[in-house]
Amino acid sequence: MSANHDDHHDAPDGHGRALRLGIGGPVGSGKTALTAALCRSLGPSLRLGVVTNDIYTTEDADFLRRAGVIDPDRIMAVQTGCCPHTAIRDDIAANIDAVETLEERFGPLDLVIVESGGDNLTATFSRGLADRQIFVLDVSGGDKVPRKGGPGVTSADLLVVNKTDLAPMVGADLTVMSRDAAAVREGKPVLFTSIREDRGAHSVAEWVAGIVESWRHQHSHSHL
């Protein structure tokens, strides 16, 4: 063993730790609402932890705590010094520290959700922090957004287009969004949701449950 023997959480192969799921996307697209929905849907069957990256104070963490969807102690807030993308991409130290603190305190866990602070279309999670990532858009940003691409839209493991209930009101054409997203994402999955109407975001929760299951299968200790 090397000098890093006590850093098993840093093991690139992810043996013996929870799947780390990044949720990114622009301000107001519904990242926190999706995180709450996933806790609501998956909480009964999976051991969860949540790390929020608030731009201001602990707004998102407080929202989740008030929502009552998860034990408040299992939510940790990370401050990002005006640069939400830096904390999830370039300097992930504080986020890794929070994830590991949750795993040490409450582990073993099945899933740790890392919700980024609201950012722009270029934001994406480092592979050193997130094993899988979801990028959340909403229809009110306009139906051209998927076409504009950016690493979040093109490379996330799942693209979620939220607030479909608002589409008629903002003149967004979901067919256009769906077609453009499929084109720039080369077949990677896209799900349309309205978390206001489906408070458990069930299609997304089902996708997440699937990746947690395959992660567990690939990284269980029996494979060591």
Binding site: T80, C83, A87, D90, D91
Partner: peptide
């Protein structure tokens, strides 16, 4: 300052 050790979030 790009050393990934969390310093960017301290003022």
């Amino acid at each position: 300052s790009r050393l990934p050790a969390g310093g960017h979030a301290h003022s």
